[in-house]
């Protein structure tokens, strides 16, 4: 059972390695969106450090939604999704595997880029540490809920925009706790509460979304 999950993840990693272009565009999108904000808000470091958590988190949301619309679409287009659905393994593992693969490919790099952008927003060191931690706990939520949206909008025209419309409201708790963690460290309140709530939300989505995504896949492939 677990071997199928690992096989799906390894398959996606290999496919992403072969097609570095998509991966690069998503990371550059994240950097560019974040770098636009100082131009809009102004260079004042105090102001920037206050909005840094929110800006980085919203950019992470948008970057993951950008890459999620093709999570199942490519496999659906060339027929390999059907073959995987016909494999003698539960569909839940396929949905979970694809979501985790997406998290490894598109979620973790956000974590590595965030400190550089944190410095750009003159965040102090401990705030950058909490930002990375909140992204580490929060990005699985983005991939898991996003996989539900991707499965629901499989094969629809305008799927990408529709996916954002459907899933963005569901991202709100992750955004609030994630960005809140950074603000809490800045104001000295300590981010344990936010991070633990974010972790609780992540565990809940981990338990709920693979089943819903699997059901949505079966509905969409019909």
């Amino acid at each position: 059972m677990l071997r199928f999950l690992i096989a799906v993840i390894r398959r996606d990693l290999r496919l992403a390695a072969r097609r570095k272009g998509d991966w690069m565009t998503s990371q550059f999108f994240f950097v560019m969106v974040v770098s636009m904000f100082p131009l809009g808000i102004g260079p004042d470091p105090v102001m920037l450090s206050k909005v840094a958590g929110g800006v980085l988190w919203v950019a992470a949301l948008l970057a993951s939604l950008l890459s999620l619309s093709r999570l199942f679409a490519d496999d659906h287009h060339d027929g390999s999704l059907e073959q995987m659905l016909l494999s003698p393994n539960p569909t839940v593992l396929l949905a979970l595997g694809k979501a985790l693969a997406h998290w490894l490919i598109y979620g973790i790099p956000l974590l590595l880029i965030a400190p550089v952008l944190g410095v750009q927003f003159s965040l102090p060191a401990d705030a950058i540490g909490v930002l990375m931690l909140s992204l580490l706990i929060g990005t699985p939520v983005l991939s898991l809920l996003g996989s539900v949206g991707a499965a629901l909008t499989l094969g629809l025209r305008g799927g990408g925009v529709l996916l954002t419309l459907l899933i963005l409201p569901l991202y709100v708790p992750a955004l609030i706790f994630g960005a809140g963690a950074v603000d809490a460290t800045l104001s000295g309140l300590g981010a344990e509460a936010n991070l633990s709530l974010l972790a609780a939300f992540m565990v809940m989505t981990l338990l709920v979304s693979p089943w819903v995504a699997a059901a949505a896949l079966k509905v969409s492939i019909e």
């Binding site: 496919l15 097609r19 287009h77 060339d78 027929g79 016909l86």
Partner: peptide
């Protein structure tokens, strides 16, 4: 015990 070959080949172009 079943294998299906539809209109689509189910082949990944990159591999």
């Amino acid at each position: 015990e079943m294998a299906y070959l539809g209109h689509l080949n189910g082949i990944k172009d990159e591999l």
